[in-house]
Design a protein around this nucleic acid. Structure first.
Lengths: 157, 157
DNA sequence: TTGCATCCCATGAAATCCCATGTTATACCA
DNA sequence: TGGTATAACATGGGATTTCATGGGATGCAA
């Protein structure tokens, strides 16, 4: 038995005229294993759709409920924004979910969607936007973490 | 459950037309013992594939989940990069995994792959590239740690 | 009725499984 | 110790299943 799960990988799927997309099969397996459901909402920070298991939002709600952190007001606000925007997306017998106009528009998705794993969450992007975003992140991470390559010291010039 | 295991040794295996490679049997034993699964992704710093147990990523996800800045930008970037690139690779009844085009291309692997143990992780290289990389590393180590020299025999002078 | 969302079936492509075979490593016995 | 028998492993190819995706049918609400 596994209590853990991870949304991984990057998967490109078609969006048909009805707004339907196949949820990647790995993601479906997680939903089944956990007996939970997929929840999606507009990302607060990026032009993409964000998704997770309903369980995760439940944990968030509990944290807020029991939090004694005086300075977490901002986080509470942000979280509440998400709750207001989030919606359950069950998938049909062929494994597809029907994304709404609101979500598709926010992410600028028309006929192709990119699912990007984020561990306990995932995101859905427009292909071109994701390409740019990935390039940005790679550059950013490499810049900020030269430490990743400690064996390349140039001490003897 | 044991948390101690090591990916060791250097093993050369064939990659067939379908992208299938035998996972070294020692590695398979580790997967079975830990009841985990192999996860692979493109190395951030080298032209090679990197692999580890899913447990390792799961720990990372838990750390992020329980950290206080749920909405941190840097964290978002990192999770996208790591979880978005990583993919589970279960092996079939004959012990093979099917590497993807994306990974093979990144590592420049066509028909032969070299598995290199790295302890908690391992890497998969194109044979020629690994040969160069190993030479580079050895040279680097000797240069930066002259103390090692006295123990080296002078047999290839 | 009309528009919209869900459900069901069909199809092609891709990933996975299974069996067969040669090779290498290990165990066993003289 | 050497030599052979046995088991483990790597690898090729074909069969099978899963998956993504298009299209039509069905049900519900305005």
């Amino acid at each position: 038995m596994r209590s853990n799960f991870l949304f991984l990988d990057t998967i490109i799927n078609k969006v048909d005229a009805k707004g339907r997309v196949s949820l990647p099969s790995d993601y479906r397996a997680i939903v089944k294993e956990t007996s939970s459901e997929i929840v999606c909402y507009r990302s607060l920070t990026s032009p993409c759709i964000e998704g997770c298991l309903e369980d995760l939002l439940d944990k968030l709600a509990t944290e807020i409920e029991t939090s004694t952190d005086f300075f977490s007001q901002t986080q509470d606000d942000l979280t509440n924004l998400i709750f207001g925007d989030a919606k359950r997306f069950p998938f049909d017998s062929t494994g597809r979910i029907g994304l709404t106009e609101k979500l598709l528009k926010h992410a600028n998705i028309t006929d192709t969607a990119v699912f990007v794993g984020k561990g306990r969450k995932f995101q859905i992007w427009n292909p071109e936007n994701w390409e740019k975003e990935e390039a940005r992140i790679r550059a950013e991470v490499l810049k900020n973490r030269p430490v990743l390559r400690p064996t390349l010291k140039e001490e003897n010039k």
